[in-house]
Simulated scan of single mutants.
Amino acid sequence: MRTLPEPVVRHWDFPRGIASAALLVRFGAAHGLGRDVLLDGSDLTADHLADPVAEIGACQELAVVRNLAARLPHSGIAAGRHYHATTFGVLGHAFLSAATMQDALGMALRYLDLSFSFTAPTAELAGDRLVITLHPGALPDDVRPFLVERDLAAIHTVIGELVPGEVPVLSVDLAHAAPADTRPHEEVFGVRPRFAAGLDRSVVDASVLARALPLASPEATALCERQCEDLAARRRRRPGVAGEVRRVLELSARFEESMPVVARALGLSPRTLRRRLTEAGTSYQALLDEVRAERAAVLLSGASVEQVAAQLGFAEAASFIHAFRRWYGTTPSNYARTRGTSGG
């Protein structure tokens, strides 16, 4: 049986290279937007954009995304088409040198935190179908549609570059409302998405996984994977204050820790923790929402809505249902049914 690895992370707050932010600035410039407008609030400069080895925080790229999405709404698909395998640096070269599409996909999931994803993609086999689901979690509402479309378009663009022949896309679902013009979506996916669908996912004929890649090289794959391991190890050693807060919350049994409790666990005062999170472009509540959203998606595979609500520290199921709808655009029960799990 073919198996696919779990993604190494299920959140978006990881350090990343400069390539994606630079790409978005170029994309905006091609549509008449000035660099200063696009970099506003990101603390990025022209020197950062020109440094090919610069590393930035996710919130810095998110600021660029917010500026772009506010001025070019419904442009996520168009932006995603500019992401190629080579955009991802050594990880992209690992894709190109893989033996099969399944090997390339496995590499992407094992080193997801070397990508530019904001939507925590997962890949599952359902019979003869490969289901790629994006999990926006607690992404801010003003950037969620843009990033979902950008990430999914980038995934399909790279797959199309890797495998010879047509990619057999069976369906695409998007949780947000349909734009006036869906032709860009149809050009990328080959099908018209179902909008307001509750989930963000693409379903592809699983036969694509067995396709041999034309640039396969076991020697190059081994070298690229070694470089990916080294880069990932270095980045994972310094997660920043947001990552430290998330780590404490992820170890929590019932998410009962208040911000002062977490601050003490990190050796900080609540005021200092609040300030440092603000400087990182996030907040304690946003991080709590992200971790709860990630845990909820996992727990629903084997527990009822009431049980999951209790495990996540909600006083009642209704509060959990309201929060889950805000995170995923659907109810926990509908989410569980769509994924073929319990959630009763």
Rank of each mutant, 00 (worst) to 15 (best):
A94M: 09
A94K: 13
H84T: 04
G41E: 01
A70Y: 10
H82D: 02
A70V: 03
A79K: 12
I56D: 05
A123I: 04
M101S: 09
A99Y: 10
N67C: 09
T100L: 02
H84V: 01
A79N: 14
A85G: 15
A69S: 05
H48Y: 12
G106D: 12
V90Y: 04
A123F: 02
A46E: 15
H48D: 15
D40S: 13
I56Q: 07
L49H: 04
A46T: 08
G89T: 01
N67P: 00
L109E: 01
D113P: 01
C59F: 11
L112P: 01
Y83A: 09
L91S: 07
L62Y: 06
L125Y: 10
Y83D: 07
G89C: 00
H74R: 13
D113F: 00
L125V: 05
L68M: 08
S97C: 12
L49G: 06
T45F: 08
Q102S: 03
L49W: 07
P73N: 03
S42D: 08
C59D: 13
H48T: 10
P52W: 15
R71P: 15
A108P: 04
C59T: 13
R66I: 14
A98H: 14
F88T: 01
A79S: 12
E55I: 15
Q60V: 10
T87P: 09
T122P: 04
L91H: 07
H74L: 10
H84K: 13
C59Y: 11
A58G: 12
A123Y: 03
H74I: 06
D36K: 13
L49E: 05
I77G: 13
A99V: 09
S115P: 12
T119M: 05
R66F: 14
G92A: 00
A58E: 11
P73M: 11
E55L: 15
A50P: 01
S97A: 15
T86V: 04
T87A: 07
V65N: 13
G41P: 09
D103E: 08
L44E: 01
A69I: 00
A108E: 02
